[in-house]
Amino acid sequence: MQTSRDWIGTATVASLLALWAVLTMVTGTIDTLRFPSPVQFWQSLKQIATTGYADGTLLSHSLHSLKLVIMGFTVAAAVGIPLGLLMGWSRRAEALINPVFLLVRPIPPLAWIPLAILWLGLGDAAKIMVIFFAAFVPSVINTFTGVRGIEPNVIEAARMLGTGRWRLAREVLVPAAAPMIFTGLRLSLQASWTTLVAAELVGALAGLGRVLNVAQQDIYPAMVMVGMAAVGAWGWATTRVLAVVEARAMPWLAVRA
């Protein structure tokens, strides 16, 4: 089953690539000044990878963006998960924190960008702040939902067994809520990349968003596509890493099959 699905997937992608090549290079149906051909895409990729573009190579831009995503995401998770646990466990903490949360939550993360730039300038700090605001929300909400969804019997069993507060959090609440916590982290990671690119588009000195921005000003669609592909590839790669961490963190789910 899996192999036949893989085949269909590969065939679909190959067909689209072939169609792209034919429409741009053979029939000329698509104007290559608006939408680049595969060859132009490849040349732009070579250019940014070797000589560089927008004050950096593909690698340096990528690493810069990756660094900001990892920092913003990590801080958001490090604050969001404990806060979600606290709100899920203690009605009092929820009553205290939730109103603030409800006030801030409807503001789209991208709306923080102007304020972040005014406060922190065009450097890294502003980007990390915006990523934090975007990535923080799904981490908190899903952790909170995960804790609230724990089977009451399981918590009663832990209390009956004389479990202390710290061990209850570490060995019962966290693993019981882990599937939801990881759902939150996946959404947080996605949000991190989205907001990073948006923030870099508005103004940045380096990074994949800056590549997109400069390429747009240079009217260079092939380089825009290279930038888009790079963001997509890094988003995919970081999601894969998170999936591996998730599988390692929850071995009891791995043997379920």
């Binding site: 089977e151 019997n153 399981v154 009663e156 069993a157 832990a158 209390r159 009956m160 067994l161 004389g162 060995e171 019962v172 693993p175 019981a176 882990a178 929850m250 009891w252």
Partner: peptide
């Protein structure tokens, strides 16, 4: 309050699935 001197066996087992 609940404590290990009064051990409970629940109808739905209430085991820790991750242990």
């Amino acid at each position: 309050g609940p404590g290990p001197d009064r051990a409970v066996v629940f109808q739905q087992f209430a085991l820790f699935p991750w242990k």
